[in-house]
């Protein structure tokens, strides 16, 4: 702002220009555009098909994962299926089966599970949508694997000393979802009500399910 910038004078004036943030034409972005244009030109795909895929990707959300967890909390047989064959369990709820094998890890009074992908940002997108930015950050990826209790504390999650912290590095072909513990005081809750307590972060394992 300039020295003469005084609103009370009421005269038209310019604010300093803030640069647009849509000009990040990096090398890889240029490559993606070039490849996409070639594929469209060769009629292997269309702009509309690309747009629809992006839209579908953006529309996925942790709501689907929360449904799976809430069902497992209320139906022991379903929970068993979820822990044995999670992809089949998703399908059984009418959800996508997922392209990757899904492993569901159960939190208990003795084990707290948390997921990280140290090599990139592998994430069960078909159940949770796009990963949060912090999940892809170098800070989370490097520190969660060697200082998990500290990082969990930064999320406000204090795991008692007598509970094992089990980190799952999603480093190859599996995807992981944490089955959080069902909060106390929810015995008479419906599946729909329970699903409201299941947050994205609880399914990554950086927090517990919300308290009622």
């Amino acid at each position: 702002m300039t020295e003469r910038h005084q609103h009370e004078q009421g005269v038209p004036h310019r604010h300093p220009l803030r640069p647009d943030q849509d000009d990040t034409l990096t090398y890889w972005r240029a490559m993606e555009i070039a490849l996409r244009e070639l594929l469209i030109e060769k009629r292997l795909t269309s702009a509309d098909e690309v747009r629809r895929e992006v839209e579908a990707m953006d529309n996925r959300s942790p709501v689907d994962g929360a449904r799976v967890v809430a069902r497992a909390w209320t139906d022991p047989q379903y929970q068993q299926l979820l822990l044995m064959d999670a992809n089949a369990a998703c399908e059984a709820l009418g959800l996508e089966r997922g392209l990757y094998k899904l492993i569901v890890v159960e939190n208990t009074d003795q084990v707290h599970n948390v997921v990280v992908c140290t090599l990139c940002s592998c994430y069960p997108r078909f159940l949770l949508g796009l990963p949060p930015d912090w999940y892809k950050s170098r800070n989370y990826r490097s520190r969660m694997v060697n200082s998990p209790r500290e990082v969990l504390r930064e999320f406000g999650t204090v795991v008692p000393d007598d509970v094992v912290v089990r980190v799952h590095d999603s480093n190859a072909d599996m995807r992981y979802l944490v089955l959080p513990r069902r909060p106390a005081g929810t015995d008479d809750w419906s599946e729909e009500q329970l699903a409201e307590l299941v947050t994205r972060d609880a399914m990554i394992g950086v927090t517990f399910a919300a308290e009622p």
Binding site: V145, N146, S147, P148, R149, E150, D161, D162, V164, V165, R166, V167, H168, D169, S170, N171, A172, D173, M174
Partner: peptide, 22 residues
């Protein structure tokens, strides 16, 4: 075991990390 991976691991003895290895 975390304690087998990091020399100065500050968590608990039972803490683990699971990885997929070919």
């Amino acid at each position: 075991r975390q304690a087998d991976i990091w020399r100065d691991y500050r968590g608990q003895d039972g803490d683990t990390v699971d990885l997929e290895i070919y």
